[in-house]
Amino acid sequence: MRRLPAARHVRLAPRQVFILPTRAGWALAAAVGPMLLVAVNYQNSPAYALTFLLVSLALVSLLHAWRTLLGVELRAGPAESTFAGQAACFQIFLGADSARSAIALGWPGMERVLVDIPETGEARVELLLPALRRGWLVAPRLRVESRFPLGLWVAWSGVDLQQQALVYPQPTSGSPMRSRAGGGDGDGQPAGEGVDDFRGLRQHQPADGARRLDWKAFSRGQGLRVKEFAAWAGGDWLLDLDSLPGPLEERLSRLCQAVLELCSEGRPFELRVAGKRLGPAIGAAHREACLRALALHGLGEAS
């Protein structure tokens, strides 16, 4: 069987589209039999004609089903990262040189999505795929099919758009496992602005993030003020894979949870995974790098 080579962008050529009768097609074939028998036994020409018309329509609709897929271009869109246990969402764009109706897209063995391609522009389809394990989730071959117009035939093709999504470990909360990088706890002096202890309020400046605005004061009409926190010197959080007890996957899950929590709290932290040190830092890029490191730990950076 001819299979399409994997590519980010695929245009369906005539020989890559296969056609098979559907169950409805077989049912029609079975229904044509009795109709023909009626025509033969009653020597009835219009009955013959109607039977032949159905047969002719079946043949014509075969061409139409084939034609619906022919020249359809599939383009891989971005795939969003997700956590294990959830579903990864792949985007696919479909285009063609003319309008196409009712093209079904889906992973093998899963429900398909019907989409119409407009005369101009592309149709966007989002397909979900369950992410069971962390690491790279490689999308299987996509099945594109068309039963249009009569549903008697299914024209289909398997397409590999080389799509993959990064799956982070499943976050699970567990026993506290954060430790301070500096070791000592509580006896240090506040060392400038930080994130640890509340110190007071100051006037809002354009560079301040929304996270530390004093909304209560704002609602009382006292103007925009910013809460100031003091950072404890040498007090960044350290997340170390090797220092945790338990099986690897569980540790990764717990670290993942910790990364999410620390990020949502806006605290800087450092992650040590297999000799790699990330941070200490805060922000979306750091979060992404940490989650990626956790997702791919021990799996290699491949693809």
């Binding site: 028998l37 033969v40 036994n41 009653y42 020597q43 020409s45 013959y48 004609a49 032949f52 018309l53 047969v55 002719s56 329509l57 043949l59 014509v60 609709s61 139409h64 117009p149 009569l150």
Partner: peptide, 26 residues
């Protein structure tokens, strides 16, 4: 449209499909 496209095939089938006598009485 489908019907129009099927008409030539219908004509061919109608003219050429061999006609049998009644197979049994109904």
């Amino acid at each position: 449209t489908l019907l129009l496209q099927a008409l030539p095939l219908l004509l061919v089938l109608f003219v050429l499909f061999p006609r049998l006598g009644p197979l049994w009485s109904l």
